[in-house]
Design a protein around this nucleic acid. Structure first.
Lengths: 153, 153
DNA sequence: GTATACTCTATCAAATCGATGGAATAACCG
DNA sequence: CGGTTATTCCATCGATTTGATAGAGTATAC
């Protein structure tokens, strides 16, 4: 399970990417649109900004906007920045490899072998899919559902 | 990331499946072979027993043994029993579906769409792969590594 | 200069994680 | 039998993480 933090981060990024404007979006508005507790969202956006995904503008008419093109932000990256490594065990992580302290021989470790394929399959998709891709998926699904242009995050 | 508990559960099951005997294996021995804190392993085995995966024998010369054939125990099942749903968000869970309380419209929810494919890919493999399958993988890997019959969990 | 926003630090309750001590139970041996 | 020993079973604990809130500080537009 993702933490709520990572889920909120994805939600917020989707809203920001959909706006696709140079005008920053206020935390308060973002919180309302996405249904996220405002003060909690603050922390999350701040973290995304410190990681370089977002940029912020302070003071009146301030807010947040993307710092990277939406098609350059992968789902995997977002989740990893907020929740930490995606891998089921550290010794499988592609970005934060660490030997298991209870592992006698990594090459033939059963747990590692067991989980490797499942992890790779999931990782490949998480890495390949961008925020922009998701927007396209949403539009497509929205068309099919027949609600017209209005779709929710 | 799996919790340590789930990782230990998989390890222990692999050892038990490999023994493939009617004699129960003591917690103490299991703990030593798999490199798991004994008292912690107790809880895990107990939980697996309560879930029907293992059976136990009490008193002197007691211990644990499989209650289900190793090829009927899927990785996904084990992880789910110990760590809870595999799904990244509850509204995608196949075994514990629950609507997200902050979700306006599930059909077009971006987060849901975003994670669905990655989750499905991983789920399919976790569900299809059994403890017995992993043993086979381990033997194969072990042969290639040239260590002979001795392989570690 | 003041209203409006973000920024930062501290704090809190609840849940979860990893771990432990001791009670209950069954087998063995005289 | 009855006690000793080896084992599983149960209740609980401390530390960390999670999710969320509060409030003082700071930059910006007007």
């Amino acid at each position: 399970m993702l933490t709520r933090k990572a889920k909120y981060a994805l939600k917020a990024l989707l809203v920001l990417a959909k706006r696709n404007t140079d005008e920053p979006v206020m935390i308060g508005e973002l919180a309302k649109v996405a249904g996220i507790p405002k003060k909690f969202l603050e922390l999350i956006l701040l973290e995304l900004r410190n990681q370089g995904i977002l940029q912020s503008r302070r003071g009146k008419s301030g807010g947040y906007l993307l710092n990277i093109a939406a098609n350059k932000i992968s789902l995997g990256e977002v989740v990893r920045l907020i929740d930490g490594p995606l891998a089921p065990v550290a010794c499988l992580s592609k970005t934060a490899y660490r030997r298991c302290d209870d592992c006698v021989e990594e090459g033939t470790c059963g747990v590692r072998l067991a989980l490797r394929e499942a992890y790779n399959a999931s990782w490949e998709i998480m890495q390949r899919t961008s925020i922009a891709d998701v927007l396209v998926m949403m539009e497509k699904t929205d068309d099919e559902s027949g609600h017209g242009a209005m779709f929710y995050i």
